[in-house]
Design a binder for these strands. Structure first.
Lengths: 193, 193, 193, 193
DNA sequence: CATGAATGAGGGTTCATTCAT
DNA sequence: TATGAATGAACCCTCATTCAT
């Protein structure tokens, strides 16, 4: 089902991008398979050749969006820098990525607050795994307090990125470097040793 | 259209609660008018007497959910307490409300990440107005820094409540009083003078 | 679901007749709901208001066809006549009915040789119950042999009516009264005492 | 199109058997070309090399099933025996064949009661030709009456075999030798001189 | 010869909405 | 005011068929 030849990668990528954009604009249910087909230039039957249902396509696109977000943030992490800098860069890169790709933010947000989400077993929130890893190492190296549950920090970290990005998309309140630093500092102040 | 007799208030409340629960479970598009009608015991035609479209009903239910959330959090605010305590109580009451009413959290979350939201002009995020008022007063009374954009603080505050509540609903990670205090402290540390 | 007002009876009858004719001509799968809708003048949604699936409609039409066949044959049975005459009249009336309504023969035949049929529990072949009752009485009154399994007689009786009727529809070989008598006599000779 | 090398005969036979079984289970329209392809291990494109449409394949499988039925019944006829014995053996062999191969009975039954059938010109019912030949000879040799139209006898003969076989498949009422003899006797009594 | 990815018309079904009662 | 039968556009998905490899 997912064995795609080199040639097809482009088609599939087009399919993903189209789906991402349409869902961002019209929502999961407002985006019909025929819309996706028309917009992406791939026949409906062909889409169903690769994904056996709309749900399966939606999940594949979600994975794609998550992977892109990962690459743009944690993927650029440099372990040679100090933890504070790394913390800020991850936040910052993720923010940059999301405001550059509002359709991905919208897609992921819609997914995680939709009933689609609840159906999937042990589906940790996007990026939560990678962030947990980072925090574990930071605790081990005595850089952040060891008495704060990591999921609390995740809540604040991810919640603030997402809300900030949304604030730009909706109200065009864009954070400059200083703003980002201020916001991240609030969090870092609370967790650093 | 919204002038309802006493007798009807109960019907309307039932309609709201039904809609809230169904949407939480099945999403906006997974919840049909006939489902709402059947579950609430109100004939479809009757629903259309009060609300001229499904969208209008959805907006009315949203207002209801927002009002309930307001009453449970900012509605209990006591201006005689110090700002730190008030800050924590608001967070805490909102958290309690959301975990007691997961359907409201789900409903509101779905709404704000859905295309329904974008269509409405100047639709500030839930509770953002009330929080802004609180922060303004706190700045005026020299309790929190005056150089942090309030929407940043909102991002963190609301993002953390919502994510924490979701963390309970999905993973049954419930915050006890100590946990809440720890989390709120992180934020307060970052913004207090 | 089946509570139909007097007014609707006509609509439902039209629906049945249309379905009967289309299925006879194009088969179960060759007959789409939209064809039925268009031909009967009833909107698709309305059909689904009464029958919750195509299968359910098909079963309802089958019952209708069986009832009509029953009324036309066993329904005219006169217990004051001798068994031979009654036997012949039942055969004859059923034959008349089927050649007058080839769409019913086609519909029933298609149903009983289709996979639709196997799914239904204890679905005895059309008319088999009524025929069994008749034979039981005939045995009791010492008119036919008691050592022939009744389902064998049913096989011959119903098989011959159906095949004869089909022979008329397909090849226009119509049995006159003499022909019917000859055929029924073959069977009666074999079973009478 | 039908000139098949020895090597291919096996593939084609597999194709036929697969089609037979799937159609018996799911009906003509419930059996898709892709199902046949998957189950038989022959690529869709390859099937279309041998048969230029699904209809053509269906007809080829029908011919196959008819031929198998012929071989199992009339093919074993022995002209040195008396007509009564031959009559009974043909009935009996056909019965044995059909209960051993319910998928063939189902396939043939579905075909002859489906709209597929009506489209084909001068398509006499299965085995009717061979039976007619037998009856002609029997009349010539003064063994059965000459005043009964042969298609009537066919109706009874074939109708009883098919219904009896169906009775076994559906209700597990199997005829033993005595039962078969009783049933055939009914018919023979009616037609013998 | 053999393959199976690609196609899109058409299938069954749902659902927001209307309107006669 | 309250009802729910009636509507048909639009949904997701299937499938016979084609054709480049």
């Amino acid at each position: 089902m997912n064995v795609l030849s080199e040639i097809n990668n482009k088609k599939i990528e087009a399919l993903f991008l189209t789906t991402l954009e349409l869902v961002a604009k019209y929502g999961f249910h407002g985006t019909s398979m025929s819309m996706i087909s028309k917009e992406s230039g791939i026949a409906i039957g062909t889409i169903y050749h690769y994904y056996k249902s709309k749900d399966e396509l939606i999940m594949a696109v979600l994975e794609y969006a998550k992977k892109k977000g990962m690459e743009a943030s944690f993927g650029k992490d440099n372990i040679e820098l100090d933890y504070y800098t790394r913390f800020m860069l991850i936040w910052s890169h993720l923010y940059d990525h999301l405001i550059a790709h509002p359709e991905m933010l919208s897609y992921i947000s819609q997914y995680y607050s939709s009933p689609y989400c609840g159906q999937v077993e042990d589906d940790t929130y996007c990026f939560q795994g990678e962030l947990a890893l980072f925090l574990n190492n930071a605790v081990r190296d005595n850089c952040i307090k060891d008495n704060i549950p990591h999921h609390l920090i995740s809540s604040i970290f991810l919640g603030s990125v997402v809300n900030s990005a949304r604030d730009w998309i909706k109200n065009k309140n864009k954070l400059d470097e200083q703003g980002i630093r201020a916001l991240v500092d609030i969090i870092w102040e609370g967790i650093k040793i």
